[in-house]
């Protein structure tokens, strides 16, 4: 099953999701060609990718389900006369078809779709497929884009420094009422900094309601739904409203003084005790790792 993997790069370097795509594409069993578009002109890029997919006789074209990939994949699919099996968290060849698994209803159910369209256009949720070592050596072809689209990127504004959005962070450290007062969020901010720009500080509804943190930082049913690689819940008891917003995180760590707190039921790893002793120690250890 010959597959085309569409990678993403930033500042000339492949992003982690690119290796995830290569790894997952290989699961389909055939040779995998990797390409990358060196332009922000997605219309032009989509045209070139569609041409490439047709000319190369690919059985499947695999994208990332990032902001970029979600924009690009349907443009290519539309040109190929097919739909996208979007946001897959698992995939496998099934004879001549592909079976993809995708979370639906806000992750409350998993849908399995059988894709018989040719080519099959797929997009993959980031942070789900663990890249294997072979993927690290991938040398993608840089696609030459000739036609120019009608939509032009005139500017890319960087997000303000130091304010990584919780919805985008790979690591989230969230605090709850256990922090006791707003100033104590400093210990969480220090831990976030130790992760070197990959981490953001989140908050439970209780502390947002109390005015300790901004609503934009709130994780949960009425806040943001997040699924980072690592979620560290500090001093959060784990009301269902909060769990609804973070239960799809890959790894959950809970730090709480109450060993019966519901948060420990969803945590992969729990530490019971005084957060004001535990968190600074953790910060120290993470700094050593990233030292």
């Amino acid at each position: 099953m010959k597959t085309l993997a569409v990678l993403e790069q930033r500042d000339g370097k492949l992003r982690k999701v690119s290796f995830e795509v290569v790894t997952a594409a290989r699961r389909l069993g055939g040779p995998v060609d990797a390409v990358v578009c060196d332009t922000t002109d997605r219309e032009g890029c989509a045209a070139a990718l569609a041409d490439k997919a047709k000319a190369g006789g690919y059985r499947a074209v695999v994208f990332t389900a990032t902001a970029t990939g979600r924009d690009l994949a349907p443009r290519v699919a539309g040109r190929l006369g097919v739909g996208v099996a979007a946001d897959l968290t698992d995939l496998a060849a099934d004879g001549d078809a592909i079976i993809g698994t995708r979370p639906v209803y806000a992750g409350k159910a998993l849908q399995k779709v059988r894709v018989t369209a040719r080519p099959a256009v797929l997009s993959l949720r980031p942070n789900i497929f663990t890249p294997d070592e072979a993927a690290a050596g991938v040398k993608p072809e840089t696609l030459s884009v000739t036609s120019s689209g009608r939509v032009k990127v005139s500017e890319i504004k960087p997000a303000p420094a130091g304010t990584l959005d919780v919805a985008e962070a790979q690591v989230i450290i969230s605090g709850g009422r256990g922090l006791k007062e707003p100033a104590n969020f400093k210990v969480l901010e220090e831990l976030a900094q130790a992760f070197g720009g990959r981490a953001a500080v989140g908050a439970s509804r209780a502390v947002v309601d109390a005015g300790w943190r901004a609503h934009a930082d709130q994780v949960g049913q009425t806040g943001k739904t997040v699924s980072p690689s690592l979620y560290i819940a500090v001093g959060i008891s784990g009301a269902i409203q909060h769990l609804a917003g973070m239960r799809t995180s890959k790894v959950i760590v809970a730090i709480n003084k109450d060993k019966d707190a519901p948060i420990f039921k969803v945590a992969d790893y729990g530490v019971v005790g005084d957060l004001f002793e535990i968190v600074p120690k953790l910060t120290e250890e993470i700094r050593k790792l990233h030292g």
Partner: peptide
């Protein structure tokens, strides 16, 4: 070209 074959709880 797509068919839903199953819906299951996570």
């Amino acid at each position: 070209g797509m068919e839903i074959v199953a819906l299951a709880p996570p």
